[in-house]
Design a protein around this nucleic acid. Structure first.
Lengths: 223, 223
DNA sequence: TTGTCGGCCGATCGCCGACAA
DNA sequence: TTGTCGGCGATCGGCCGACAA
């Protein structure tokens, strides 16, 4: 999946460990996150000194929720001592995403959906800055500027929208055709957020960040 | 869940062990059904002599697929020997569902859905026998007999349909309003079957039996 | 600048009848 | 008896403008 879009969806509070770096792994904390398989395992060490073998980015196929799969390799106490003493660097030397982000600033916009955005009556009001930053420019010499907008989501699925400018007297950008199909497909509701992201290659990416959700929220969904 | 409806949905080939009876449990066969958690466990006995502590009937919340949760208690070799010798009866003496069914014959009907039944164009053709056996009788002295039909599914959820008689010249029973909502909610397709069941209390029950489905079939669902 | 609403057109749903298998 | 289809009315989706926050 797209690195930038993944981080955009995850939000600024999420940072991933670098491959090759060292971490302390707390097995008991891991177990406590899986109450269905809760078990008391005696003799479990409180923490294990590990090296990050790999970090894979994923997104849930149904909900688009982002998550990472981190592969750990337990290291010897010898290595642990050397790291603590500074003989071996904690960081593995691989480029950090923060570093990458500072040099390559993607054009990005995030908007929380309003009642109008998610209702069946009408489309999506595009914030002006979002349209100007992320969308291809419209030929405003025409009376009714419009274009087809193509964007890919985290799974690489291509979405298509009609993007128009200036409806009514106060001018504004709108997404019309294709928008409600997107809302339905992603099961978006008022309060959820969408992210537009234009990569350096000019390709448009589209992500989703859902409002605070409860465990088993789908059990209470309408119809 | 409703005992009769559960058995109706499960079909005549499915019979459950009685509570209190004895069975031979084959752990290896159980493991082979869960390939995701496949593991080779050494020293596993080929079979365990068990008593049925409890049998709970369930239905999947999303698909309405029926399944049973069977609780087993391993028994001593002493009991096993007595059972084999006939000193203790294999059956636990609890009433069998087959026995129950022979004395209480519920009015029941099962129909495989046609293309017309599942299309958005029109409602559901009710077989005449289904209507007469399971539905409250209509007042046919009126020019357009119709009634509201209430039925509960396996989860106790109440469905509502408009039931009419005699549309067009060849008279027939139809479910109109409410039917397509039911088809959508249960994601029914042509080939699936619905079951109508009128209990002794006169209450109507409504079950679903899906056509042969493949693993991960939802991955190929439309939209 | 942008969230919401009234108006309105067109597409689809869904009810009715006819007809045939 | 019942599966399918043509027809057509009612409903809803969805695009436009106006207006106000």
């Amino acid at each position: 999946v797209c690195l930038e879009l993944w981080h955009a969806c995850a939000g600024p509070l999420v940072s991933l460990p670098k491959r090759g770096s060292f971490v302390l792994y707390f097995p008991q904390g891991h177990l406590e996150q899986a109450p269905d398989f809760s078990a008391v395992i005696y003799g479990l060490p409180p923490h294990v000194f590990c090296r990050i073998l790999d970090v894979k980015l994923h997104a849930e196929r149904d909900s688009d929720e982002v998550y990472a799969q981190v592969s750990l390799l337990p290291e010897s106490e010898d290595i642990e001592r050397k790291v603590r003493e500074g003989v071996v660097d904690v960081d593995g030397g691989e480029e950090d995403y923060e570093v990458f982000k500072r040099s390559n600033t993607p054009h990005m916009f995030c908007k929380t959906l309003t009642a109008s955005d998610t209702s069946t009556h009408g489309g999506f009001s595009v914030p002006r800055r979002a349209a100007e930053d992320c969308f291809p420019p419209l030929d405003c010499s025409q009376p009714r500027p419009s274009q087809e907008l193509l964007a890919r989501d985290l799974h690489g699925l291509e979405l298509c929208f009609r993007h128009i400018y200036r409806v009514g007297q106060p001018r504004k950008h709108l997404l019309t055709t294709g928008w409600s199909a997107f809302v339905n497909k992603k099961k978006l509701v008022s309060g959820d957020a969408v992210l537009f992201l234009r990569g350096d290659d000019g390709k448009l990416r589209l992500g989703v960040r859902r409002a605070a959700q409860f465990e088993g929220a789908s059990a209470f969904s309408i119809q």
